[in-house]
Amino acid sequence: MRASGTSLSQVTPERPWLSAELIITLKLVVVIMVSMGFMWFDHRTAYLQPVRGVLATLVYPLQRAISFPIDAGQRLHHLWVDQQTLIHENQRLRHQQLLLNAQIQRLTALEVENRRLRTLLDSATQMRERVLIAELLTVDSDPYRHRILLNRGQKQGVQVGQPLLDQRGVVGQIVHANPLSSTAILITDPNHALPVQVNRNGLRTLAVGTGNYQRLELPYVPNNYDIQVGDVLMTSGMGGRFPRGYPVGVVTAVEFDPGSPFARIDARPAVELDRIREVLVLDVAPDYSNDALSATAR
């Protein structure tokens, strides 16, 4: 017992300085402020990328666990599929390969010719493209946000901004590269715009995502421009993200509205973006060296 016997601590039982209830509220206030700070920093800067990398690596095993039953199911399917089907498939693939090989022969000749012409014209950039095959791990659970998680990351050389393709056309681009995985945005995401060109006449415009896997919008085409239903859209190479000449989609609706300066134009993506399982991550470093040229020419 202390000398000052009339102190408050003697009358009331021992109380902590802050009650438990108050501590919880304080925690919430701090956590909300930190979250808001995080959001601001993540939106404006790239400083939080290492934090995101660590967190994404922590949840990576769980995400692998999610795709495990699907993989196992496919493997089981391969195990049980009968020989007749396999023979048929094999035959079909052989034919396809023959066809593709024939096409490639023609393409190589064209490519060599193209390169020769370009050197004649003194054109600086020769694009040499390398690809990496990545598998889809999960899709964003928010149906309006078209983002996918891929099983390749910085370890395999994935970088932010790399375009994604499929055998049918453009899929999207990488927005976050984590150590073992990466997040990509699809071309149908409402926040994505893609520089495109009409194949028929070279008209350049932007294709903007709508949040619908089957629809792209071309909001900046003036009413008097020549665009028709059925026109094929290709990447234009403007903006430097996507290389030129990959199919993007087909125009499905054109509506001229005299009241507004722009026509209402819809397009359907070339890729069925809600059914993809594997994508190609394109490495489009411009290749200035001359030996790349001779290597292909040889």
């Binding site: 909300i32 930190v34 979250s35 959001m39 967190l55 994404a56 999960t138 946000r145 998680l149 976050h176």
Partner: peptide, 27 residues
Amino acid sequence: VITGWVLGLLVDAAQGVLLGQHALVYS
């Protein structure tokens, strides 16, 4: 609150959205 916040951050990183968005709501 803290457990919720950490979980939310993990969800943010997993979905590749703005860091702190789910963290705020989960806390």
